[in-house]
Design a protein around this nucleic acid. Structure first.
Lengths: 123, 123
DNA sequence: ACCTTCTTCAACTAATGGGTTGAATAGAAG
DNA sequence: CTTCTATTCAACCCATTAGTTGAAGAAGGT
């Protein structure tokens, strides 16, 4: 899992980490702050943060003993781009399929042989 | 990892599975078809497909001995929605921060006390 | 019936992931 | 210098995952 895209998807596959990200959209937080709502050790939270950091989703600075965590929201665009690119391809394909199916439907029913392009009757 | 959103993120955290999804946007494929490009056993590919299926990303029907795999692209919207919701929140927060910073900048510089809202000079 | 094709099930292994506890570091504050 | 707070490192545990090989099941073709 060497590429960033994989790391980002993987990072957000965990509900706790998604919740952290959600809270970080509102404000930067210290590790202690972030840990408060969860029923796990501080060290576990620290690990979660490392995962988010390795994915590029958060950065951390220093402020006295604290290490405020900051969300790098632009990284989310990486995913959005991938998803939307493929979503779009699939949509286009479905559209083509619908067209094909509609034509087949027409062919099946010889009464309504009104082909849009060919104004005259078939030879 | 009980919720679907987690399963979908997790499913797409693997480059091979992403590639499969990418190929499935163009056409349905059999397991053999899908497996061809990868240097792993057929059983491994079958397992990958199970992950995608459990996430709701693909469905499989039967067609003689084959089990054609079909992409369910709408599921991608689940992710897009989550991501965009939080992306937007972060953006809004940044915007607010910029405003605050701009105000602080103004306060720091007493020469240019031209407040846009107040047409006359300050009292 | 038999063979072939396509696919999955079962059992195993090695690596990874999320959690734990205990010790170590970084910086303020006494 | 000691102590307190905030955070991380290290070692370990257990469950899950990605891969393997070998056997089995399901559907057609002969």
């Amino acid at each position: 899992m060497t590429d960033q895209l994989s790391r980002v998807f993987s990072a957000l596959a965990d509900p706790t980490r998604r919740d952290m990200v959600a809270r970080l959209t509102e404000a930067d937080h210290t590790v202690n702050d972030l840990a408060a709502p969860y029923d796990v050790s501080l060290q576990a939270v620290s690990k979660h943060l490392k995962v988010l950091e390795d994915a590029g989703l958060v950065t951390r600075t220093r402020e006295a003993q604290r290490r405020p965590v900051h969300l790098e929201a632009e990284v989310l665009d990486l995913m959005t781009k991938w998803i939307e690119r493929h979503r779009r391809r699939a949509e286009e394909r479905y559209a083509r399929l619908d067209t094909v199916l509609a034509r087949m439907q027409d062919d099946e029913d010889p009464d309504r042989s009104t082909d849009d392009r060919q104004t005259g009757t078939a030879s």
